[in-house]
C-alpha cells in the first residue's frame, strides 16, 4: 500500500492569524528568537495502489480539485510505502 502525506499551507504573503497566535504563545512561555510561525494542515491518505506514478497522478488531482484552494494555499506531498 502507498501512503500520501499531503501538506497544505497558506501561500507566502498571506497573513496567517493562527500562526501569529502560536508565535505569541511561544514567546509568552519564554521561547525567544522565533521569527515566524505558520500553521497548515497535514493529510494522511492511504491508497490501495502499488504504482507510484499512478498514486502521484491521483494525489495531484485530489489537491487540485479539493484538498487545496489555489487562490490562497499551496500544497506539497510525499508518497511512502506502508
Amino acid at each position: 500500500m502507498l501512503r500520501a502525506i499531503v501538506t497544505v499551507m497558506l501561500k507566502k504573503g498571506i497573513f496567517d492569524p493562527q500562526g501569529r497566535a502560536v508565535h505569541n504563545g511561544l514567546e509568552s512561555i519564554g521561547f525567544e528568537g522565533v521569527k515566524q510561525v505558520r500553521v497548515g494542515k497535514q493529510l494522511e491518505i492511504d491508497l490501495n495502489l502499488t504504482d507510484r506514478a499512478e498514486a502521484k497522478k491521483m494525489v495531484d488531482e485530489m489537491c487540485d480539485k479539493m484538498l487545496a484552494n489555489p487562490v490562497v494555499e499551496s500544497f506539497s506531498y510525499e508518497i511512502t510505502e506502508v
Binding site: 497558506l10 498571506i14 497573513f15 492569524p17 493562527q18 497566535a21 484552494n69 487562490v71 490562497v72
Partner: peptide, 11 residues
C-alpha cells in the same frame, strides 16, 4: 466568484 474567505483576522 473571485478570491477566497480566510479565517477572521482576530481568530
Amino acid at each position: 466568484l473571485p478570491g477566497a474567505l480566510l479565517q477572521n483576522k482576530g481568530l
